[in-house]
């Protein structure tokens, strides 16, 4: 019966498959979510709450499979909740799964589309790349990591794009450098009609600064702190073109050239003290990704 199905599938979400994506702390979770999978579009997110005492955290959709009735999340264990999640195994259930939330990526035939992924951003770019490709665009993916063995989703991205450009800091794979190095070169050599960046704020900011002089439309997916995800609390407010927007209902995607990056990064740190451990780790991750002297994330 319809109602039983709704109750069953909306209230608890079973982990159908948990996989280690990158040692030691990045996992993918394929969740049983038939109704969400039927509605979800690239660029949207869900909010999860692990248990009765857990917080609500937003996570981007890394894959949507309506045929199988599943969605996939890729999460790195950085803070309390994400580390706790990494202790969940295949067959375990997440107490609350709410979505799909946010506006979908505006998929259009733009021509040459360049998608830039940093860190986790690579995962949500997968369904976005697939949709742009299906819409008849030429899709180039730029993805970076400290070294070759830290790249995730490389093969998956190959499947849904025309080209994948890889950058590594140590030069162990692809071009030596960071994503904006490859992006600048790509723009100079082949041009771009649309650039989209998903990842840490500092990376999205750099991408936006890289494209600004060329006037290339640049879409970014913002990741502020959220509570309800339905517009009710205003905690995720961001400033875009001088206007206050709520990332949960107006976004999460906005014009990267109009975003007030300083404000976003400031507000992301609102609970620095309270979430010290998790936030320190998150910040280090940003630093590692962009600074010259990076330390190995894992061995």
């Amino acid at each position: 019966m319809f109602l039983r199905a709704v109750v069953k599938f909306l209230v608890m979400a079973k982990i159908l498959e948990k996989k280690l994506i990158r040692k030691p702390d990045v996992f993918s979770y394929e969740l049983d979510a038939p109704r969400i999978s039927r509605k979800a579009q690239p660029g949207q997110f869900v909010i999860i709450r692990l248990h009765e005492k857990g917080e609500r955290i937003p996570i981007s959709l890394a894959d949507i499979n309506p045929a199988e009735g599943t969605i996939t999340l890729i999460v790195m264990a950085v803070g309390k909740t994400t580390t706790e999640l990494s202790g969940f195994q295949t067959g375990d259930e997440i107490l609350d799964l709410c979505g799909p939330l946010g506006m979908p990526t505006h998929i259009e035939k733009a021509g040459k589309v360049v998608l830039v992924g940093g860190g986790f951003g690579v995962a949500p770019l997968f369904p976005i790349a697939r949709a742009f490709k299906a819409a008849g665009n030429s899709v180039t993916v730029v993805m970076g990591a400290r070294s070759g063995d830290l790249l995730i989703y490389e093969q998956e991205m190959q499947q849904v794009s025309d080209r994948v450009l890889i950058t590594t800091d140590d030069g162990s794979k692809g071009t030596k450098g960071i994503v904006t190095t490859a992006l600048s070169r790509e723009i100079a050599e082949n041009g771009a009609d649309l650039v989209m960046a998903v990842g840490p704020a500092i990376m999205m900011k750099s991408v936006s600064e890289t494209t600004r002089p060329f006037g290339i439309k640049t879409v970014v997916s913002l990741n502020p702190i959220m509570v309800d995800g339905t517009g009710m609390c205003g905690g995720c407010r961001v400033s875009v073109g001088g206007a206050v927007k709520f990332a949960c209902i107006d976004g999460p995607e906005f014009d990267g050239h109009a975003v007030d990056w300083e404000l976003l990064m400031l507000r992301q740190k609102a609970y620095k003290k309270e979430e010290q451990e998790s936030f320190e780790a998150w910040k280090q991750r940003h630093e590692r990704m962009l600074s010259k002297e990076r330390q190995p994330l894992c061995e």
Binding site: V227, M232, L266, K269
Partner: peptide
């Protein structure tokens, strides 16, 4: 959705809507 005043400094850390604070 909560109303804000549109004044300077309203997006600083430490400024809440009552909805967020109470939620």
């Amino acid at each position: 959705v909560p109303k804000f005043m549109g004044i300077e400094g309203e997006n600083l850390t430490g400024v809440y809507s009552a909805n967020e604070f109470l939620t």
